[in-house]
Nucleic acid binder design. Structure first.
Lengths: 130, 130
DNA sequence: TGTATAGTTCGTTATATGGCGAAGTATAAA
DNA sequence: TTTATACTTCGCCATATAACGAACTATACA
């Protein structure tokens, strides 16, 4: 399973680089809020091209901050769970605490509420039109 | 004094970007270890050009992670102290915890021990030769 | 089958970043 | 007041990164 070697500076800076981007932080905070989101919902939230969002998700995954699971045509992402190492869990907690009152993140939460109410089929079609 | 407004995502990503570089993390960890260092000692530790180190220090200072105070010709840097906001203090603590056992950081500590024993005058002359 | 859809990967472009040396600034020493 | 020293700022270059659209992959549905 997970390899429990010591954190090295490379891993740590990788985590920090992954989180050093506003859009990726928004993704992480959306997952903190909703637990799990499919890619098209994240695309809708950020208003970026699918390929761009996919790359952001890849970077977060490389840093072990998030995980994905595929269900049919949809891919769902969630925060790294119990398997995540201590540093990852702690930095996610730090982010959460630091941005709890952030105005932009609050707006994202509201927007996410609307997005989750929408029909997923229609949502993905909307994405297609970009 | 310090303005106590809410953290915004901009500030937070700024902190994360500042720490998303190995050399800057090494600087921070050196300051964790020794409390205070002058620029020429940091230059010696990293083995980079003075101008490069100066820029790294500037970036860390912009993110409110470190502070400087000038004494004569020498400029000393230390970690942001009591004036630092909660997020900064916490992320510094996280870094410290995450890298406590890192091999490279341990090497830096040893090297720093030697650097601090050296005559500061001679150290800065050595720097000049680069 | 074949066609549509949800994501990903690839190639390109514009901008950001890390590195350096040269020039500039401020303090100390001669 | 001149010279040296300890940094910093500036201008440059090479590489990294974020964004996009086009092409590709995998699954579902007709």
């Amino acid at each position: 399973m997970a390899k429990y070697k010591n954190n090295c500076i490379k891993d740590i800076t990788n985590i920090l680089k992954a989180l050093g981007d506003e859009n990726r932080v928004r993704i992480v905070m959306a997952l903190v809020d909703k637990g799990q989101l499919c890619v098209c919902q994240i695309i809708e939230l950020l208003g970026l091209a699918p390929s761009t969002v996919s790359k952001h998700l890849y970077i977060l995954r490389q840093a072990n901050l998030i995980e994905s699971n595929k269900k049919g045509r949809w891919v769902y992402y969630n925060l790294a769970g119990g398997g995540a190492n201590k540093s990852v869990r702690k930095v996610l907690h730090w982010l959460q605490e630091s941005l709890a009152k952030d105005a932009g993140i609050r707006e994202d939460k509201k927007l996410l509420g609307k997005i989750l109410k929408e029909d997923p089929e229609r949502l993905c079609l909307k994405m297609k039109k970009r």
